[in-house]
Design a protein around this nucleic acid. Structure first.
Lengths: 257, 257
DNA sequence: GAACGCAATAGTGTCGACACTTTCTTGACG
DNA sequence: CGTCAAGAAAGTGTCGACACTATTGCGTTC
């Protein structure tokens, strides 16, 4: 299993041109981003134990920043920590995902209502502009861009609610479901219903129709959930099947994913 | 199996008492709890810079577990981290508190509605029993008990929503506002309106009246907010305007809290 | 006397090492 | 053959040390 240790595939050993050996003083931050990316992209697989030494070697830093990053990721629900046994990749269950989407729906709908109450016209217009600026090219872009733009749209609503805590929570939830959303976007089931949804939501915002907008948002999110479930199944298959059945004989009780 | 440690020579016997020098393997966890307590009790004051060396000395561990704990606390919003400058105690603004309460209200109301939809009768009855078991003695107990019982009540609703993510979020929010809730409970403004609120909420739950229950919850929370604001002001005064002027010689610019 | 360096100090970020725990391997025993 | 225990190996938890950065204090210049 260690063979496959090319985890840090794309991670540049050190892109700093001038300061080659210089300690960067933000290893922790970079480790955090890199590991999170590994999680998002399934390079680290659900339920898997995380080997700190291995990680630290592949990232070219010591274990200290690795552990700091893992601690942060643990607080955010990406990984879990078992004393004296180490960090494990969150085991991703379908229902766990549904729970997250449900929470997201709750928060976003509330944010929309608050936005309708509180945001002034120019702010609402920012939302309209944001969407109008990208709506035409939206579906014809690489998945990462689509994802970022979609998240940006929803986050903007959260921001216009005027409550930074809502923004923080939504951002945290987004981070945790990003990997699956990315998969869903690449999946054939992804269609352009999303676009009309967003447009309708903008319309409701402009009219300050809190109830209708919240309803649209809820439906918008629910709509993606079912599509996402299929995408998730396919993704898990892709991750766990291709390997070799050899791994299956591991004695360790494998938690269902 | 531990015999193995005796190989060669018994390294110098610890001169201090045995229990003292033993590495406990959970310094990090204890540091986390201790520091959080310091924050909750205002021993570390809002806006203050946290000195890792000093903390590590006073807790009797090295900086490593201290930093791990602080990282966790940062993810949870208790402290903030500025690169190369260190950790700072969350500067607690009144509006920041309002944001948190608002988020709490959103999540709890949603939880209540979900509970009404999903929980079976025996579960609803658990909520009723929980409250009936404590309602009589509720107001005549030490603040810590009142606080724990109140949190338990609200958390039980979250649990009955069937969504663990909601439970987790609410627990996290509770942890962040606990210190202020504790102050509010001890404050003269604390009255027993809370009790009738809870009873009414239980009634709504039994009737599965989602809308009314959510409304009651929202009002219940809003009611405490205003009382809390006054309590907060008093608490901050107590913290920043200590009895004697001895501390006043510090030139540190105090951020407005 | 105020602004500006510039050395001294304090404090954070990271590292390598080592103690302790868990997991794997091996070989004796039934 | 399977079981089990002792030792070896692997891995985590914590430490003390040091590199680097921010801050403070002091002397110099205008």
């Amino acid at each position: 299993m260690t063979e496959q240790a090319e985890t840090g595939a794309d991670s540049e050993p050190s892109l700093t041109s001038d300061a080659e050996t210089r300690r960067s003083a933000d290893s922790s931050e970079r480790a955090y981003n890199t590991i999170r990316k590994l999680l998002v992209e399934f390079k680290l697989k659900p339920g898997e134990r995380i080997n700190e030494v291995q990680l630290s070697r592949s990232l070219g830093v010591s274990r200290t920043p690795i552990r700091e990053a893992l601690n942060r990721l643990a607080s955010e629900g990406f990984v879990s920590l078992t004393p004296n046994r180490g960090f494990f990749v969150r085991s991703l269950s379908t229902e766990g995902l549904l729970d997250l989407y449900e929470l997201r729906s709750i928060i976003e709908c509330a944010a929309f209502k608050l936005m309708c109450e509180r945001a002034d016209d120019s702010e609402i217009d920012r939302l309209r502009q944001y969407w109008e600026a990208i709506v035409d090219v939206y579906p014809n872009q690489p998945p990462d861009i689509i994802l970022a733009e979609d998240e940006g749209f929803h986050l903007l609503i959260a921001e216009l609610s005027g409550n930074p805590e809502i923004v923080g929570q939504l951002a945290s939830i987004n981070a945790r479901i990003r990997f699956i959303r990315r998969i869903q976007i690449e999946h054939p089931s992804h269609d352009r219903a999303q676009i009309t949804s967003h447009s309708a939501i903008v319309d409701a915002a402009v009219k300050r129709d809190a109830e209708n907008g919240a309803k649209l948002l809820r439906e918008h999110i629910e709509m993606t959930v079912s599509a996402t479930q299929q995408a998730l199944k396919d993704a898990l298959l892709r991750v766990f099947a291709p390997d070799n059945g050899a791994e299956l004989k591991r004695r360790r009780r494998t938690r269902d994913v």
